[in-house]
Write a protein that binds this DNA or RNA. Structure first.
Lengths: 231, 231
DNA sequence: GCAATCATTTTTGTATGCAAAAATGGAATG
DNA sequence: CATTCCATTTTTGCATACAAAAATGATTGC
């Protein structure tokens, strides 16, 4: 018999641990969208999707509403929902906001990150360099994302992190469009180099500027790719 | 309490509106939360709330999921949902992010706003001044919010606007705590004065800085009020 | 008197049913 | 051949049903 826990009447958040079907459906559906398995503008047929995810329409519809709030799906009254289109204008908007969020995160991270945090990020950076050297795109992207994620985390602002995560989901959808040519790729890596440098020196202003530029460059690449697509 | 008829805003299905019940429920529920009618940490009883909003549990649950994504409600697995607590730490986080978003909006607005836009905002500002002069708090808040909203709108970035709206909802919940003392209120008005000035001169950098400070000052007030609350 | 236990009630989570709207397809018409 | 109906099918939106989990509260034992 374990010790009887003291009844914490008010602090409800501490016991929100159990996994709910609704949440797994949200995660699965978000993955399908972000990974591009459900392409932009795909109609979400409730019956089909529910069967695919092994659930009924009710939790699926709740998940769709949740993702609609994140902007990953669009609700069409009486006509269901579609995967949010990948419009160039939308991308432009997202990158601008994301730039501001990452800049803020960079500044906060320079103040709040521990030395261990920075060492971790640096390690991720070297992993990324290795994959860049070998021209391995997928692992490169993975480490790239992890670095950005870690910088956000080091900012120590959960609200910022959540907002960033939602915005970043949109960008992830477009990442495979970026078509990293050798020159562009090298440039992006160089920017990362500078970012790690600024973070190590805890130069918040510099890191902020670098992140903004980095995002702006990413946007250019995505825009070229999107603009080239016949729509 | 026996059947107390709740004034149904207009659940009329007469007009062939494209508006879904789900959306009206989202708006109604958000209003109840933002206006404080559903206090922080209130448990959302689905049966009771559905009846109150004149609907069934299904659309209500969808609305709850939607608002959970906005952060206004928290989901407790197998225990339903509660109105998100108003914790000081959360407020601090929100204000930091909101500061970055408004700063960005200010910069963009200085670039993109038309002269007519600026004239409109200036007009709102004078209305606000009038209500400040008369010490009318509620109308003051209303115009204050409208001014901030208009600046966001002038940025011409719908993604930014939506993100701001969600963040701002949290702040609105705390606004009645701010307890504007004469001195503080005067200071806030003075800051607005400067903001209008910077916008008119289209001095983006200045407006950005002013908005950041303005938000930081608001935070101080809210924090004092929240910190003073025995919780 | 108090805590623990367990039956009962309540509430949540999911599935299903049903009506209305939209999509589909095919015949009739120009 | 294209277009416009209209009947049929499909899909969505909402309500309800039902099982499982949690809250409640009465009872028992100490």
């Amino acid at each position: 018999m374990p010790d009887t826990p003291i009844p914490q009447a008010s602090n409800v958040t501490s016991l929100a641990e159990r996994r709910l079907l609704h949440e797994t459906v949200v995660d699965q559906l978000r993955d399908l969208i972000v990974q591009g398995e459900l392409a932009p503008e795909t109609k979400l047929n409730e019956r089909v999707l529910a069967e695919r995810l092994g659930t009924s329409r009710t939790p699926l519809r709740e998940a769709i509403k949740f993702l609609a709030s994140e902007g990953l799906v669009e609700l069409l009254p009486n006509r269901g929902a579609v995967v949010a289109p990948l419009k160039p204008e939308k991308m432009q908007e997202v990158f601008v906001v994301l730039g501001a969020l990452e800049a803020l995160a960079g500044e906060l991270a320079c103040r709040n990150a521990s030395e261990a945090d920075i060492a971790d990020i640096r390690a991720l950076h070297y992993h990324m360099l290795a994959h860049h050297a070998r021209g391995e795109l997928a692992p490169y992207f993975r480490y790239n994302q992890q670095i950005h994620q870690r910088i956000i985390d080091c900012a120590g602002n959960a609200t910022l992190a959540q907002s960033w995560r939602a915005m970043n989901a949109h960008v992830k959808r477009a990442r495979y469009l970026a078509n990293l040519s050798g020159e562009r790729w090298d440039k992006a890596v160089k920017e990362h180099e500078d970012m790690i440098d600024a973070l190590t020196r805890r130069d918040g202003a510099k890191l902020q500027a670098l992140l903004r530029d980095h995002l702006a460059n990413k946007l250019v690449m995505v825009m070229e790719a999107l603009g080239g697509r016949p729509k």
